[in-house]
């Protein structure tokens, strides 16, 4: 219980410890605490921002999906229409082509008929002439009766 120099010793060591704490302990720890506070605040803000962005993105997705569906529907409708048109056009073309082929065939048939008819006529003319020759027993002057013969063959 005696007061002695320990008093001063204590005061001096107290001062040294306080100085040490003030210089090397307190500032770094407080700095770390403040930094962490700032970091947590930033993190929370970022999380909030992320949530909002996610919500926006979800909305955007919904919209894009709807748009895509609409567009697809439109494409399908267009394609349907177009295919109908193509089929229709093909039908028309086919009909026309058939008509054309039919006409061409008819024309050819007619031509062949005419040719055959011509040939027959000539043949008949010749036969008639030969027959007449035979009947007359004498040679018919072909050149003299050409007109007659031509008239005859034309009438056949």
């Amino acid at each position: 219980m005696n007061m002695n120099l320990t008093l001063l010793g204590q005061a001096i060591s107290f001062a040294i410890f306080v100085w040490f704490c003030m210089k090397y302990v307190w500032p770094p720890i407080l700095q770390a605490l403040e930094d962490r506070e700032a970091k947590i605040a930033d993190g929370l803000a970022a999380a909030e921002r992320g949530k909002q962005e996610l919500e926006q993105a979800a909305q955007g997705k919904e919209e894009a999906l709807r748009e895509g569906r609409d567009k697809a529907q439109e494409f399908i409708t267009q394609a349907q229409k177009r295919s109908d048109e193509i089929v229709e056009a093909a039908k028309v073309t086919a009909r026309e082509e058939a008509e054309r082929i039919k006409l061409a065939a008819q024309a050819e048939i007619e031509q062949n008929q005419n040719q055959a008819r011509e040939a027959l006529r000539l043949e008949v003319g010749k036969l008639a002439l030969a027959g007449a020759e035979q009947v007359l027993m004498r040679e018919v002057d072909e050149s003299a009766h050409r007109d007659v013969l031509a008239k005859l063959s034309a009438e056949l």
């Binding site: 410890f17 704490c21 090397y24 302990v25 307190w26 770094p28 720890i29 770390a32 930094d35 970091k39």
Partner: peptide, 14 residues
């Protein structure tokens, strides 16, 4: 005290 707290102050990790 100085040692225990200085260790933390020096290596303070956020």
């Amino acid at each position: 005290f100085c040692y225990l707290f200085r260790v933390v102050a020096r290596d303070a990790s956020i």
